[in-house]
Design a protein around this nucleic acid. Sequence first.
DNA 1: CTGAATGGATAGCTCCACTATCCAAAATGA
DNA 2: TCATTTTGGATAGTGGAGCTATCCATTCAG
Lengths: 208, 208
Amino acid sequence: MRMAELSRESGVAAATIKYYQREGLLPPGELTSPNQARYDATHVRRLKLVRALLEIGGLSVAAVREVLTAIDDPATSTHDVLGLAQHGLPVLKSEVSDEDRAWAMERIEAAAVARDWELFPESPLIEALVSVLCTLREVGHDWVLDALDRYFAAAEEVAEADVGALARRGSTEAIVEGAVVGTVFGDALLATLRRLAHAQASRKRFNA
Amino acid sequence: MRMAELSRESGVAAATIKYYQREGLLPPGELTSPNQARYDATHVRRLKLVRALLEIGGLSVAAVREVLTAIDDPATSTHDVLGLAQHGLPVLKSEVSDEDRAWAMERIEAAAVARDWELFPESPLIEALVSVLCTLREVGHDWVLDALDRYFAAAEEVAEADVGALARRGSTEAIVEGAVVGTVFGDALLATLRRLAHAQASRKRFNA
DNA sequence: CTGAATGGATAGCTCCACTATCCAAAATGA
DNA sequence: TCATTTTGGATAGTGGAGCTATCCATTCAG
């Protein structure tokens, strides 16, 4: 398979494919001569994954590169990848006052204890969580957090399903790639379903 | 309050505030003379909301404008806003083959029936959902969908909490603004918690 | 009265994700 | 064989988004 076919197969313009190669999102084809290369099904697959991460996952090209680097690195362990998979999130480093942080941590810890979670307060995920809570407070909508424990419960529900499904996969590479894909696409899936469920819940409560 | 103070209070550069005004994200101040305006706490609050929608919600300026227009429109009803709140999602219109669509709809309907949801197959939300499922299939990771019913369950869990919390709010405007804010920020909250929960679930399953 | 700040208009900046052009070296088809 | 595509690789250009900077006439503060 050469460039034209790879482009047709994947639905991505040839110039864009070359761009992705330059950016390290797609490995080079196997060179048959100094200026001819051959591609195969793995390139098609990788290309589809890149497009999906960009379009559905909403990742930047740089974020996609990081994610793919982790997938391709044989040293990446299953445990690593679950910690790494936050690369998709806009890592927000908003400055938060000490008292706001304390308020947020109190809320988080209360909900975590109730579900028997063990927290590592200095992890970037906790940072992100604190940011979200404080921002909600800032804009005067901290009532959202009245349901924080149910958010925890829902997150636990899907996470257990995710880890279960992941564990059922075969090789380490399959698990690593699955973790990344599941994390990114699961967000989109969950967000969409939540909106659908809003419609259901509001019908159930007000109309029926 | 004049520009300098509004800027200090909100942490947004004056030039940026002017830009937001031009873009219709922030109402003009009350003119005291042809070229002097006064601002108040509502402007500070709105500004913080704009920043939060941009940074945490990840919305574009155009999307923020739509959302705020809906909030400000007195004609927006509670029911409207829950349908409208999908404005935050990247509305993906990927072309899907008929058989892929059929495959996706089958999965979706099965899960919906199990939870007693009523679907409207031509709604944009269903379209988005079909896109996500088909893309997962395309990239060879449809095993994620083995847990689709648990995603439905989790979505229902949070949606009911959302609608319940919303119903507890007072005025119509409070509900409308709450719906938008809750939808956008809830996504960020849920995504972050899901990653935290991944760590918990993987510890529980493999380490403990 | 004087210097700083303001609202409003306009132009410019940086980054990002592509896209287009060019070239010499294959590949293809007659 | 030999004209015509196609290719990989390099480089430059494009368009949109989200600010940011400059200018100007007016107005405010000391």
